[in-house]
């Protein structure tokens, strides 16, 4: 087991009070597993990703724990997290285009980064990995501005996995990319896992169709809580949570035409996470809601590896 997240709670401080952005999420991540973390804006997926590597100034760790390779991560303490970052947990940022220092040649930047972690640069290994993502060796002597957007993205992917971290977090890295580039990025990520550059991965995205191309397991979140977690094909083909079902059925696919089959969305909006009412947070939009939904539905393993937080599904 690479990662064990247990009842993790991370809130945002605001003037009006705490926003319960991530409210008690638990899940394990096995060695070699790619977890697709899906959900809509404000569901807590980005908060979860950030919580595993770096809380920003407004976030606070309220409860729960994160265990990586048997060690409890000090996620609430920025300085204590430093030795883990990049070596054990690494992140590919959303805007990798601007993640590199524009005044440094790339090679120098990589060397400095490694020095800051007291690691030696294995140049052969770096060259191998550049080959793998089809970047020429001479990119190391170039400035970031000399690279195209796609090349920068690949370079950042190589850098963030250089120390073979146990856990790689990719937060919406494909959302600004064109479809053909998306495919290349996703294929590369899969290759990194297959070659053991990273032990396991959390791929955060709003695009379920894309997650399904890569992830072994998909976890769907809603309003700061886990809604459903299951093997990717189960989530796509036989979801049990009403939210997942409605979400999947609202996605147009090539071949589906308005005139033939009119898709529908989910009416309503997610609740405010500033002092949310107890109970299922989806119940206002849920067609199946009944009295029991006023109580918080606990995540239940309905079949092997299939966890659903819904009274109707359990």
């Amino acid at each position: 087991m690479t990662l064990e997240v247990d009842d993790l709670r991370v809130y945002y401080r605001t003037l009006k009070g705490d926003v319960q952005a991530l409210d008690g999420v638990s899940f394990p991540l096995r060695d070699g597993e790619i977890l697709g973390l899906a959900g809509e804006s404000g569901c807590g997926k980005t908060t979860l990703g950030k919580a595993l590597i770096r809380l920003d100034g407004r976030m606070k760790h309220v409860g729960g724990s994160v265990t990586l390779d048997g060690q409890v991560l000090p996620i609430g303490d920025d300085a204590k997290m430093n030795p883990y970052r990049f070596k054990h947990v690494s992140l590919i940022p959303q805007y990798s285009m601007s993640a590199m220092n524009p005044t440094r040649k790339i090679g120098r930047m990589v060397r400095e980064l490694l020095e800051s972690r007291r690691e030696k640069l294995d140049l052969d290994e770096l060259h191998n990995r550049l080959d793998l993502v089809e970047l020429p060796k001479d990119v190391l002597g170039k400035y970031p501005i000399e690279l195209s957007g796609g090349m920068k993205q690949r370079m950042v992917m190589v850098i963030s996995t250089l120390l073979n971290p146990s856990l790689l977090i990719a937060d919406e890295i494909t959302s600004a990319l064109d479809v053909s580039t998306q495919k290349a990025v996703v294929t590369t990520l899969k290759g990194f896992r297959d070659r053991g550059f990273v032990k396991s991965m959390i791929f955060i995205t709003h695009d379920i169709s894309l997650t399904n191309q890569l992830a072994d397991t998909i976890m769907v979140m809603y309003a700061g809580k886990l809604a459903e977690k299951a093997p990717a094909s189960t989530v796509v083909n036989a979801p049990k949570h009403p939210y997942t079902q409605l979400l999947i059925s609202s996605l147009p696919e090539v071949g589906v035409r308005y005139a033939d089959k009119r898709l529908t969305g989910i009416p309503g909006n997610p609740p405010s996470l500033l002092k949310p009412e107890p109970g299922c947070r989806f119940r206002d939009r849920c067609p199946l809601a009944f009295e029991k939904c006023a109580e918080d539905p606990p995540p239940v393993e309905v079949e092997k590896d299939h966890v659903v937080a819904c009274w109707k599904a359990a």
Binding site: E40, H206, L247, S250, L251, P252, L263, T264, G265, I266
Partner: peptide, 14 residues
Amino acid sequence: LDASTRIDVLNLLA
């Protein structure tokens, strides 16, 4: 827009 609401805006356009 989020997946659950975008399709309704699209339908509206249609």
